[in-house]
Computed example of a mutant assay.
Amino acid sequence: MALNRDAILGAVDVQTEKVDVPEWGGDVIVRGLTGDELDNFQGSIRQFRPSFDGKGMEPVLVQDGMRAKLLVKCLVDEAGERLFTDQDAPALGAKNGSVIDRLYDVAARLSGLSEEEKEELEGNSATATEDAASTSSSPEMSSTAP
C-alpha cells in the first residue's frame, strides 16, 4: 500500500536512544535530527573560501567544536526537549572527549549521517587527507629513532 501525504507527515520517524554515560553518573537521551535540523547543522560547519586557482569559491569544513555542535541539538530530556542551546556547544565540548565522541557516533547514526559524510566531517576522508597533506608545512617525521 502506498502512503499518502497525511500518513507521511503524521509518521513519528525521529528516533531516540538512551545511552549510558557512567562518566556522568547516568543515562542521556540522544535524538536524531530532522531533515531541516540536519541541513542546518551541516551548513553551520561549512564555510566557503576562494579556491587555489582564484576562479571561484570552495567549501571548507570547520571542525572546531563539531561534535559538541551536533550534540547540543541532539541531547534531549524525557519530553524530547533539548537540554542545551547552540550557545552551550563550547561548554559541552569541554567535557570528556571520549564521552563526546561516543555520543556523537550515536547522534550521527540516528541523524542519518552516512559513514562517508561522517568521515568527511571528521577529516578522515581521502580528500581531506590529501588536502591536509598538500597544505602542510610541517617537516616529515623520521621513522628511525636517534
Rank of each mutant, 00 (worst) to 15 (best):
M1V: 06
M1F: 08
A2L: 04
A7F: 04
A7T: 12
A7K: 12
I8A: 09
I8Y: 15
L9W: 15
L9C: 07
L9P: 13
G10E: 14
V14W: 03
E17M: 05
E17S: 06
E17H: 10
K18M: 14
K18E: 15
K18W: 11
V19A: 02
P22G: 04
D27A: 09
D27F: 01
D27N: 11
I29M: 11
V30H: 00
R31C: 01
L33V: 02
E37S: 06
F41A: 04
Q42Y: 10
G43Q: 11
G43R: 12
S44E: 15
R46N: 14
R46V: 15
Q47M: 08
F48L: 12
S51W: 14
F52H: 08
D53G: 05
G56Q: 11
G56Y: 10
M57Y: 03
E58V: 01
E58N: 09
P59N: 05
V60M: 12
V62R: 01
Q63K: 13
G65P: 00
G65R: 09
R67E: 14
A68S: 14
L71I: 00
L71K: 03
L71D: 11
V72N: 14
K73Q: 15
C74G: 03
E78H: 06
A79N: 10
A79Y: 04
A79W: 04
E81L: 12
E81Y: 13
R82L: 13
L83S: 02
L83G: 02
T85M: 13
D86M: 07
Q87Y: 09
D88G: 02
A89L: 15
P90C: 03
P90N: 00
A91P: 11
K95L: 11
N96F: 04
G97K: 02
I100T: 00
I100H: 02
R102G: 14
V106E: 11
V106C: 10
A107L: 04
A108S: 08
A108K: 00
R109V: 12
L110G: 10
L110S: 02
G112W: 06
L113P: 06
E115K: 01
E117P: 00
E117N: 10
E117W: 10
E119Q: 06
E119C: 03
E120V: 00
E120H: 06
E122R: 00
N124Y: 06
N124D: 13
S125M: 05
S125L: 03
T127A: 09
A128Q: 07
A128F: 09
T129E: 15
E130P: 00
D131F: 09
S134T: 07
S134Y: 13
S134H: 13
T135Y: 14
S137N: 13
S138P: 04
E140Q: 07
M141R: 12
M141T: 14
S142D: 14
S142Q: 11
S143E: 15
P146L: 07
